[in-house]
Amino acid sequence: MLDFIQQTIGGIALGCVYGLIALGFVLIYKATEVVNFAQGELMMLGAFLSFTFIATLGLNYWLGFALAVVCMAVLGSTMERLVIRPILGYPQFSIVMATIGLGLVVRSLAGMLWGTDDLRIETPFTGGVFKLGGLVIAADSLSIIVATLLLCAVLYWFFRYTKIGIAMQATSQNMLAAYYMGIPVKRIFSLIWAISAMVACIAGVLLAPITLIHANIGFLGLKAFPAAVLGGFSSIPGALVGGIIIGVVETLSGFYLPEGFKDVAAYVVLLVALMVMPQGLFGSRALKKV
């Protein structure tokens, strides 16, 4: 039983990271109807940047973290400006291919710049554990869960109560009307990409102590994608819940089932869930659009 709880908490932590990446998919999709397949690579890049700031340059963990997030925000909006905006309005295929290509480019660039070794950063939580009765929880896992909750609260506040956040909701609900209101729709798109890249960066830095940093952690995006679909693809809570479900299922099947199940678990869950609820968990009642 103790094992089960411990594994579940680990799964939730992993799922939070999936959820954050899925959140990036959903934010961009809702606002611009573009599926950004480079989301996982954005996360990887964020992790590498934080490695450079923290391990190579020797900055304080929090300072390096913040710097990486800011850099990724700039990078995200630059990508939107240079790669996506020129082809916005053309068929989905071109945009999807552009984002896949973008991901490949980012991945190989990262390989060239940071090499192919596994990198690690020291976090204030490294090695720390919380003991609760017989339960032992790694501080790393706990930090991910807490950070995800905080981030969600901030995002909720931003989209619900700030003028620019409401304008983003408005743009995603009716782009033409947003133009008529004098909302600078194109700048809003850049901002959405910036926010998605920031969220991805945070996910990457949080994940770093668990999986180490290497050019292939971008592939986690492929596990976050079913999380987004599971949540209905247009719902922010859906993305997080989907992420957590997939994280927990993956961890538990890695622990209890024979080897190999771990990697397909996400897709098995997705297939079963979509057979029962084709619209995704939150798809039909996605009344609160962001």
Binding site: K163, I166, A177, A178, K288, K289
Partner: peptide
């Protein structure tokens, strides 16, 4: 109108 925003938020937009 923005269907999922409140009337007030619509006006504020």
């Amino acid at each position: 109108v923005f269907p999922f925003l409140s009337v007030l938020d619509n006006l504020r937009m």
